[in-house]
């Protein structure tokens, strides 16, 4: 049994070592859990939409609820124009949500507790949103960095600040998800360690904390997936509707 609370985040390769040039692309436990996440989502949707009855069963109802939840989130934050991006937001939301939830199962691995995973997601969103903005508005998308009604003296400063603000989006998006997941799982492990080291006499209090923290972590897992998706919608909204 690992006593170091950080060992749960270790990435190790399973199976044969595959290498292309200097890049190690072996199949790791992280990749395994990503595959599990995607497989779970796919299996759930394939099973739940198989019947397509007018009066939905439990599975179909759940699938429809997820669909409506995301559809409402997009129309509330990004408006009608964002409808074409629904599949992307839905897959993003479900991937983060299911990856977080799979991580809550003891002895499993939390994919989203690694900054590189969340940063890859956030950077992909950032690039995508920027491209969408330029396609929609052409070069006038750069007006995003020049707010109206600013005195000319302050303009250079404001433009630099706006550019920094824009560039900090993927960082804040990825750091939030990663920090939440890593901090939560470390805390759970630390309290679990207290239970073992304090033994049968003093271990009850940390055990209670562990139970409470598990509940909190499930809440955080959902909340962070939601925040990740809703911020993507907000960024998409900025790209689609240029108003400054």
């Amino acid at each position: 049994m690992a006593t170091n609370p950080m060992t749960q985040f270790e990435v190790y390769s399973i199976g044969p070592k595959i290498q292309i040039g200097n890049i190690d692309i072996s199949f790791t436990n992280s990749s395994l859990f990503m595959v599990i996440t995607v497989a779970l989502i796919s299996i759930f949707f394939i099973l739940s939409t198989q019947k397509k009855s007018l009066i939905p069963g439990k599975m179909q109802l759940l699938a429809e609820m997820i669909y409506e939840f995301v559809a409402k989130m997009i129309s509330d934050t990004a408006g009608k124009d964002a409808r074409p991006y629904f599949p992307f937001i839905l897959s993003l939301f479900l991937f983060v949500l299911v990856a977080n939830m799979v991580g809550m199962i003891p002895y499993s691995f939390t994919v989203t507790s690694h900054i590189i995973v969340t940063f890859a997601l956030a950077f992909f969103i950032f690039i995508g949103v920027t491209i969408i903005g330029f396609i929609k508005h052409g070069i006038s998308y750069l007006k995003l960095f020049v707010p109206s009604g600013v005195p000319a003296v302050l303009l250079p400063l404001i433009v630099v600040i706006e550019i920094i603000s824009y560039l900090s989006r993927p960082i804040s998006l990825s750091v939030r998800l990663f920090a939440n997941m890593m901090a939560g799982h470390t805390m759970l492990k630390v309290f679990g360690g207290f239970v073992v080291s304090l033994g049968i006499l003093g271990g009850w209090l940390p055990l209670g904390f562990s139970v409470a923290l598990t509940g909190l972590e499930i809440l955080v897992a959902f909340l962070q997936a939601y925040v990740f998706a809703i911020l993507t919608c907000i960024y998409l909204n900025d790209a689609l509707h240029l108003h400054h």
């Binding site: 560039l167 900090s168 989006r169 960082i171 804040s172 939440n180 809440l219």
Partner: peptide, 22 residues
């Protein structure tokens, strides 16, 4: 209730990320 935690995390990460990027 559920989003106050989210708000706290959102604000703090926003502050840190800008300083880091700059």
């Amino acid at each position: 209730n559920t989003s106050s935690l989210g708000i706290a995390m959102r604000l703090s990460s926003e502050l840190v990320a800008a300083v880091f990027v700059a």
